[in-house]
């Protein structure tokens, strides 16, 4: 079972951070920092009490995707079957 679990989650790690890709990643991270800082410059119209909090959307975007990843990891062993599962 453990080996099967490993197969479900650990395939290839194709994020090879070298050379150009490293720069791209750094630019991306810098972009994120700028996005958060830019929040000071815009005038917000919060609809609820809590969505005007500084950095709410940045944090929520991160949190939401983590939740989805977590759910996917929970669901994978439950729903994953071999490709010929339905074949007679």
């Amino acid at each position: 079972m453990n080996r099967e679990r490993d197969k479900m989650f650990q395939g290839r790690n194709d994020l090879n951070l070298q050379g150009k890709k490293r720069w791209l990643l750094l630019c991306f991270l810098a972009g994120l920092v700028i996005l958060v800082l830019a929040e000071m410059a815009v005038h917000k119209h919060p609809a609820f009490d809590w969505d005007g909090t500084y950095g709410f959307f940045a944090g929520y975007g991160f949190f939401a995707c983590l939740v989805l990843l977590l759910l996917a990891r929970i669901l994978r062993p439950l729903v994953m079957r071999s490709e010929d599962y339905y074949d007679l």
């Binding site: 989650f9 650990q10 994020l15 990843l69 990891r73 994953m80 079957r81 490709e83």
Partner: peptide
């Protein structure tokens, strides 16, 4: 942007549910 960041981190640290030839119920 921050959603994408989770993807990069998950990929980097092997948390991403990798592709496998399979079907899902």
């Amino acid at each position: 942007g921050f959603g994408t960041l989770t993807f990069i981190l998950a990929l980097r640290y092997g948390y991403y549910p990798f592709e496998a030839r399979s079907l899902n119920l």
